[in-house]
Design a protein around this nucleic acid. Structure first.
Length: 505
DNA sequence: TTAGGGTTAG
């Protein structure tokens, strides 16, 4: 009965039964304790779980590995990561599931690299338990988050070698991992090779294509999915609308937005509205975007307003930008990035007085800007760069290379953007146009440290600025390199002097 | 006597 409740929507009933059992003087067996722990996880009740843990020790069940695995998961889901690890350390035996829970604990705690370390250890048989299909799922998620393509490829090999290659859930994870690590081609290979595809496979592929700027292909995949008789769900439409927005397909976007509820019974959620606001905003239809936000049944969140604020920056729409900031202030959600966007909106129309005013305001409010940071993976090692970074051991070579690239690109027609863009600001004193943005440093390092022709993959925490975007474009032609930059919202593929996206012009 | 545990995709 406790088990039934722990799986139901009434987990607290399971906890009540457990208490009643104890009141009647009955000692629960490890199974019952495990079920009630699960109830505590579902109730997010830290206190309840702590009580159960104490009783487990009293009952003498502290050596039951399966019960301890549940307890570990309990601590992990309550964000008590040290306690979860302590339980793990005290387990007399650890099987694959216990190691899996440790991996998920690390991932939840942001210790993503340690999660990969556990996979290493399991694969090398140093811990007596081999990775199973669930291990692979968890590790692939970690790889997606880190952009760890090489490691993800290793997990892929492991999956093939151990006969998991046809598992739909694993293939779905592989599609997501390859897409998020910048390899849509590989994602598509996995997708094509699947004997059967479900709504998750299709949605993952559509989102992957969308994030890489292949809008038309993403929409084509949606229609193909219809022909195959797979019903789309909310996440499918998030992918489709995202495809429209990244490829500037306004009419198609409206069409999908209208038909999703009418024909497919999927009610638009905040993500769908967000995609539409992004799409309309990028297309310059700022008023339509604003009206759409006002028409929403749910209250718009800060992210929604920020999307519109970004569009105001692109089009230099000062009055709407000011209005959006008002909404953000009302939500008490204003962040450094918001002021930077407003500031850039003013600077895009040359209103320097206002620029100075906003800067002063930022200083007064002690608003800290997020430093731009770019990473590049070389033979499994992640190299990190900040703006004007001089901490890399090969800094001299990198700056020499950057100057050399600058000269070559100038010959090919690259002109540095002079408008004051503040995306990558380390401190508000710095004019970003005068400094070396983190992605430029990472690209220069890529040219320097990889053989000619190697694809340069850079991951950036913020959105890349117009100038760096131009720089990458020209570089891809002059140096004959494919450059892939993953910024905060999407991938940019630069090849032969062009980019796959339509965000910058 | 029987069964019932723990991790899990976009």
């Amino acid at each position: 009965m406790i088990r039934a409740y722990s799986l139901s929507n009434f987990p607290e009933e399971g906890f009540k039964l457990y208490r009643e059992m104890r009141n009647r003087g009955i000692t629960p067996d490890p199974l019952s304790s495990s079920f009630v722990t699960k109830s505590c996880i579902r109730m997010s009740s830290l206190l309840g779980g702590l009580q159960v843990h104490a009783k487990i020790l009293e009952d003498g069940h502290q050596s039951d590995s399966l019960l301890l695995t549940t307890l570990m998961n309990f601590y992990s889901s309550c964000q008590k990561f040290d306690d979860a690890c302590k339980v793990f350390d005290e387990m007399p035996q650890r099987d694959t599931v216990a190691w899996n829970v440790l991996i998920s604990c690390y991932t939840r705690n942001g210790r993503t690299r340690d999660a990969l370390g556990v996979f290493d250890m399991m694969e090398s048989k140093r811990c007596g338990s081999q990775p199973d299909d669930v291990t692979c799922l968890l590790v692939l998620q970690a790889c997606s988050n880190l952009g760890a393509l090489e490691f993800g490829g290793r997990v892929h090999s492991y999956i093939r070698e151990h006969g998991f290659g046809n598992a739909v859930n694993l293939c779905n994870s592989l599609i997501a991992m390859y897409s998020r690590c910048g390899c849509v081609d590989k994602a598509y290979q996995v997708f094509k090779g699947m004997p059967s595809k479900d709504v998750i496979s299709w949605s993952a592929m559509i989102s992957g294509l969308a994030s890489h700027g292949h809008g038309r292909e993403a929409i084509e995949a949606f229609w193909e999915m219809q022909r195959m008789g797979v019903a789309p769900d909310d996440q499918t439409f998030t992918g489709v609308l995202c495809a429209c927005s990244h490829s500037g397909l306004v009419d198609e976007g409206w069409m999908f937005f209208d038909c999703m509820s009418k024909e497919f019974s999927v009610t638009p959620n905040v993500h769908h509205y967000g995609c539409m606001v992004d799409l309309l905003g990028r297309a310059g239809l700022l008023e339509q975007a604003y009206q759409l936000i006002l028409s929403m049944r749910v209250r718009p969140d800060a992210a929604m307003w920020r999307t519109l604020l970004g569009a105001c920056r692109i089009y230099g729409h000062v009055s709407l930008g000011e209005c959006v900031i008002e909404h953000l202030i009302e939500l008490k959600a204003q962040e450094a990035g918001d002021y930077v966007l407003l500031l850039n909106t003013y600077s895009s129309v040359g209103n320097w007085e206002k620029v100075i005013e906003v800067r002063k305001l930022m200083k007064e409010k002690e608003i800290q800007t997020t430093p731009g940071c770019s990473t590049i993976e070389l033979t499994g090692v992640i190299h990190e760069f900040l703006v004007d970074d001089i901490s890399h051991p090969r800094k001299n070579e990198i700056y020499e290379m950057l100057d050399e690239i600058g000269k070559q690109l100038k010959i090919a027609g690259y002109v540095a953007e002079v408008t004051s863009e503040l995306h990558d600001l380390g401190s508000e004193e710095k004019e970003s146009s005068l400094s070396y943005h983190s992605e430029k440093l990472a690209m220069a390092f890529g040219v320097l440290a990889t053989p000619p022709g190697t694809t340069i993959r850079v991951a950036k925490n913020l959105r890349t600025c117009v100038d760096c975007h131009n720089f990458a474009k020209v570089l891809s032609g002059v140096y004959n390199r494919v450059v892939i930059i993953r910024d905060r919202t999407r991938f940019h593929h630069f090849r032969e002097g062009r980019c796959s996206c339509n965000d910058y012009w």
